[in-house]
Simulated assay, not measured.
Amino acid sequence: MSMITPSTRSRGPNKGGARRNENNRIYANPLPIIFNEPPPSRIRSVLNTLGLSLTEVVSPHCEGIFDPITRSVWVTSSKHTMLLWRRGFFGKGDLSRSEPSWLARQINNRRVGGKQMTSEEVTAKRRAERRQFKLDRAAAIAAVAAEAEAIFETEGRVIKPALSGPAIPSAATWRPAPAPVPETPATPTLEEEEEPVELEPIEDIEHLQLTLQEAFFLAWSLDCLTVLDPHTNDAMTLKQIWHAFQIAHLPPTLPPAPSPPLQFDNPFLINYVVYHHYRSLGWVVKGGIKFCVDYLLYKRGPVFTHAEFAMVVCPIYEDSEDQETSSLDLQNSSPFAWSWLSTINRVNSQVQKTLILVYVTIPARSRLSLDILNTPACLQHYSVREVTIRRFIPARMRD
């Protein structure tokens, strides 16, 4: 519920319906691939009876450039960028908080009045209004306290300052003050009366950054992304992508040294197992570094609701000797302190998110050959388990 405006229950069922309907139209497809149903016919009914289907699968083919330094894939085409964002919320704009809206913000800055605000501008406006509401409320409470103190000094009566009432703004009644209108319109000068200078078109310099987990999911599971080699600009094969993404997470080596061998505890494999697991269950998975976690889970996407779950990935070695001999120091692979867990849980409880510890079991080297890491077939040997953590608040959980 917003601190500035009342909840949707008090505003009526039609309030905000236009924006909600627009989001439902724009983000109607949960994935880049589309299933086109043929029109009803006798042939279709017969095929459905036989368990067959005439449904056409339309898979777009987007392109991205692999960047091993940032461990990401850059999608520079604005068409491909909006397609991947609006069909599954993949990636992040490098010049935006989430949605790639840099160009829309620049165009809005050139317009005068009646502009269509982007999601980032709406968030900034709400934060400014919330900050102003707190200042106005604090000033009103201070004024009531000063009035009570003045009555005590002059009349000797003790009055308890009220924290609510007509004089104290509340979240349901407070509205931002309208912008001041000048009393006399400014007289245009000779320079302003001249014809306006035609502005140059704005070049879209923003690109969409896909994590390696998102890029491989799009390339392997959905077959709608082509990854280009950063040196030759040629399309990489699935095997080349699989090896390159794993090597990007390994410690760098000197050029004369051979490429490091693949390992079962490679961070790319562990994080991809978690990403693929929840994406295949219908969740929208986004990065959660803002809340000190690895991933956030959305039911439909960031434009509809806030994330309900915050996940911390905890790798577990099937064989403890593999952890001792490994050259990688995986995060959260060793037992963590209770203070760390309490801190993470408190942060996410404050933003109404449920903390989930996702345990990924790493297969033992003793029972599997390293050659299995050459293909994604190795993913079937990893397992995922979840543990939900809830912060106990005695004052709220007595019932």
Rank of each mutant, 00 (worst) to 15 (best):
G51W: 06
G51H: 05
S53H: 04
R9Q: 10
S41F: 11
G51T: 04
V57I: 09
E63R: 07
S7K: 08
P60D: 08
T8Y: 07
G17V: 15
S41D: 04
T55R: 03
T8Q: 09
R71A: 04
G64M: 13
S59N: 10
R71Q: 05
P60T: 06
G64C: 05
C62N: 07
Y27H: 00
N14W: 15
A18F: 11
G17K: 07
G64R: 03
E22G: 12
S72P: 11
P38I: 06
G17P: 14
P30L: 13
I65V: 05
D67T: 00
L54M: 13
N23G: 05
R11Y: 02
L47C: 01
L47A: 07
L54H: 06
R42C: 14
A18G: 04
E63H: 11
S45C: 10
M3Y: 12
E56R: 05
E56Y: 06
K15R: 12
G64Y: 04
P39Y: 13
P38A: 06
G64D: 08
P38F: 01
T5A: 04
E63D: 02
R42F: 15
R9H: 07
L31K: 14
A28R: 12
R42E: 07
P6T: 09
P39R: 13
P40K: 00
N23H: 12
I34N: 01
P39T: 07
P40E: 07
L54A: 00
N24D: 02
C62P: 00
N14C: 09
L47S: 00
L50H: 05
S41P: 14
S10A: 11
R71I: 02
R19Q: 14
P39W: 13
C62K: 02
M3H: 14
G17Y: 15
I26W: 09
S7G: 03
Y27I: 01
R42I: 07
R20H: 06
H61I: 08
I65L: 12
S7W: 11
V46G: 14
P60F: 05
V57C: 06
P68W: 11
A28I: 08
T55L: 01
F35R: 02
R71D: 02
I33W: 11
T49V: 15
E37R: 06
F66L: 07
T5H: 03
N23K: 12
I4Q: 11
P13C: 04
C62F: 00
H61N: 14
T55N: 04
S10I: 12
A18N: 06
L50A: 10
R44A: 14
R11E: 00
L50S: 02
R44C: 06
N21S: 10
T5Q: 07
I65H: 02
L31R: 15
P13S: 03
N14E: 15
T49A: 15
I33K: 12
F35M: 10
R20L: 08
N23T: 08
R20D: 03
G17H: 15
S45F: 09
S45K: 12
A28H: 08
